[in-house]
Simulated scan of single mutants.
Amino acid sequence: MIGNASSGELIRDEGELQMAIRRHVFISHHHADDETVSKLTGLMHAKSYEIRNSSIRAKPANQARIDKGLISERVIRRLLRMKMRWASTVVVIIGKETASRPWVNWEIETAYRLGKRIVGVYERGGTENDVPEAFKSYGDTLVSWNSASIMDAIEGRADPMEKPDGQQLAPRPGARKGCAA
């Protein structure tokens, strides 16, 4: 097992009982993409993986407090760092507004400083233009919305840099490779 991984609950797959594989991850995303986070964890669960996500998905009341400045950025950063330390891998959802989100870039930079494996996953409709600048510098692997590719990336079995359609991107000079999860 890798990093903070363990066996999970028994699940039924095509009539057979088998043990779900549990992975502790932090899913970095634009808060408007909360539904995509649920879709990602559901996709993985359907393939016998239990994703334990430690990221923050702000309820409307909490988001309003953040928007009004009632919760300081210092407090938010401390909370995010604590949650990131628990995870073995940081998964970045790459969607149409991801590149412009300062918190996503901060989370990627922080994951890099913490020595976390950083996996980008294009959401359906995501483009190469949606990849955050920090991910271009610090990301380990970037995959399309495909359960096998996503799990191989999270587990460190593969380090592709893909376009949203799954084709390979040109190699990046100076790209980070093979961060241990």
Rank of each mutant, 00 (worst) to 15 (best):
V104S: 11
I108Q: 00
G156T: 13
E16R: 08
F26N: 07
E107N: 14
E73S: 10
T141C: 10
W145H: 03
R157T: 10
S54I: 04
E128A: 15
R52M: 11
R77N: 05
I118D: 08
C179W: 00
G115L: 03
S72L: 12
A99L: 00
P160A: 03
A58V: 09
E73W: 03
S149Q: 15
I93D: 01
V37N: 04
R23Y: 09
W106H: 06
E123K: 15
L80G: 12
I71A: 09
D13E: 06
P160G: 01
G126D: 08
L43T: 03
A32R: 14
K116Q: 13
D13Q: 13
R74I: 07
V91F: 04
N4K: 15
I93G: 14
G178V: 08
R85Y: 10
C179T: 06
G42F: 13
P60M: 04
R172L: 15
M44G: 15
E50C: 05
A148R: 01
A148Y: 14
E123F: 09
D130Q: 15
H45Y: 08
F135I: 12
A61Q: 11
D165P: 00
G95D: 07
R57N: 15
T98G: 14
N62C: 03
P60F: 04
I118Y: 03
S6T: 06
D165I: 00
G125I: 12
E16H: 04
H45A: 09
A58D: 08
N62V: 13
I118K: 12
K177R: 14
V92Y: 08
S48P: 02
R77K: 04
V131A: 05
A58Y: 14
G120T: 11
R57K: 05
R176C: 13
E155M: 08
Q63D: 13
P173I: 05
Q18M: 10
E133T: 03
T98R: 03
T127D: 07
S55A: 13
I27V: 08
T127M: 12
R176G: 09
Y122W: 15
A64I: 05
I108P: 00
E9G: 07
H45M: 03
P102E: 14
W145Q: 01
I71Y: 07
V75S: 14
I93P: 02
S149A: 14
S72M: 06
L79E: 11
H30G: 02
L17M: 05
R12C: 07
A158I: 13
S6W: 07
F135A: 10
H31D: 04
A181D: 03
E14K: 06
K39S: 09
E109S: 06
M1E: 09
T36W: 07
M19P: 02
S147Q: 03
I94M: 01
P171C: 02
S28K: 00
E155V: 02
S38C: 14
D159S: 06
I76F: 09
E16Q: 05
L70E: 05
G69N: 02
V92N: 02
A134H: 01
S6F: 02
D13M: 02
E14Y: 07
G125Q: 04
E35D: 11
